[in-house]
Design a protein around this nucleic acid. Sequence first.
DNA 1: ATTACCGAATGATATTTATCATATTGGATT
DNA 2: AATCCAATATGATAAATATCATTCGGTAAT
Lengths: 243, 243
Amino acid sequence: MVFLGSKMIEQAMNPDKTNCSCENCLLKSLFFTHISIDALTDICEIKQEREYNKGDIIISEGDKIKDFIYLKEGLVKLSKKSADGKDQIISFSKPFDFVSLLSIFSSEEYKYSVTAIEDSVTCNIALDIVKNMAQNNAMFAMNLMTRVSEATDHIVLDNLEIKRKHLRGRIAHILLYFSDHIYGRNEFELPISRREIAEYIGMTTENVIRTLSEFRKDKIIKIYGKDIEIVDLKRLKTIREHG
Amino acid sequence: MVFLGSKMIEQAMNPDKTNCSCENCLLKSLFFTHISIDALTDICEIKQEREYNKGDIIISEGDKIKDFIYLKEGLVKLSKKSADGKDQIISFSKPFDFVSLLSIFSSEEYKYSVTAIEDSVTCNIALDIVKNMAQNNAMFAMNLMTRVSEATDHIVLDNLEIKRKHLRGRIAHILLYFSDHIYGRNEFELPISRREIAEYIGMTTENVIRTLSEFRKDKIIKIYGKDIEIVDLKRLKTIREHG
DNA sequence: ATTACCGAATGATATTTATCATATTGGATT
DNA sequence: AATCCAATATGATAAATATCATTCGGTAAT
């Protein structure tokens, strides 16, 4: 065979990988849109893809930050253990988000944990290399900054939203979050437990369960274990806004 | 006069300013440490200093983002008006913080307001110029990113802290925040009203007042209007950690 | 001087949420 | 099949917080 395609190069460099689908992956992510084909090839040579099963820990609080990590497939939660040992969920990340959220440029180690809440695939690139790219390619640095800003912006604003709502409003909020932002449909399987919902919205597990049951009795949602169907979207949105 | 110092140049370019003390100002800020003297002079020519009195609005939610703004002197609050018209305070910024927090790179307009809670001075530089600098100077971009990350990181983690505490712990938290991070002393004048404390910690004004009174009765703090003196630091820290 | 208003303060009461107790279910393990 | 354990579920009660009412003092406006 005479023609040596980029895929073949990748396979040579990353023998444990059967393919490097960065082209698709990165194209879909606005973040990387400006990277030239050459740079793309580079990334394919140096990146590592990692697969995780639902429940697997991707990053543990306190881990040294070695890689720049972004989510190619799946869904993850960012969480932090508080002094009294309780977990608090900071946010969720979906594909093309950076798992490496804020701390990567301001800290040596992660201040939060990242856990797969659905089967997930990450792309890992050594942080040194990303920093190097940023220093040699100001457009890249700008785009990176923009994306990091967007992500954190969203976390801060979302937290504010939740803060001003009561129990029912918070439950409505997270149901609509999964429905609108993650799954894009009215029926979906909750990727997290009632306890994790509680850890995210800052209420107790019992009250989360009770409220979901209320919504069911009020015929706003249907519940089959983790499967949720939003029946009365309008009312759920009203509850989100006005309790 | 033969010698034409940089200060004279600045005065010529910015006739409304009597001096351009960027050298000091910027040196103190880690962010700008890498900028060469030449770049410094440039900034002096293009920046604008603005003075605000306590209570003045620096940025209104929805304003177009035109400038990169950082705080040279004073103290400001970042806040957002929620759908039902209530203000929520996101965070406070002290000198050498960026007032232009997250949104500057990810949005066309501010998603929050910025208000002086002490007499303040800002340095404003057209955003285009800063973006240009970032594109031509990758180190600058990296430092900028690092600083933005640090700031937002802090907001997110601080919010988590507050979220897991009860009323008394939240009050202890904010008192110690002002004492430790802003003023560096055990007695200080609260820069904000009881209502604003409530808007920050997410409780009602009445409960803020009641709790402060409790702390006074328990001889943990002394209160003279807005003047606060922390008398029993140890106990206040215990309350912050364990309620 | 008078009025009006806002921040601070306090108490009584109502509402919201947490805690505790107890079942039930379903999955994993032996 | 038996056992264990975690998640889900529900009710009763306790605790935390909000709401409402009222007062006091300062200060800005008329």
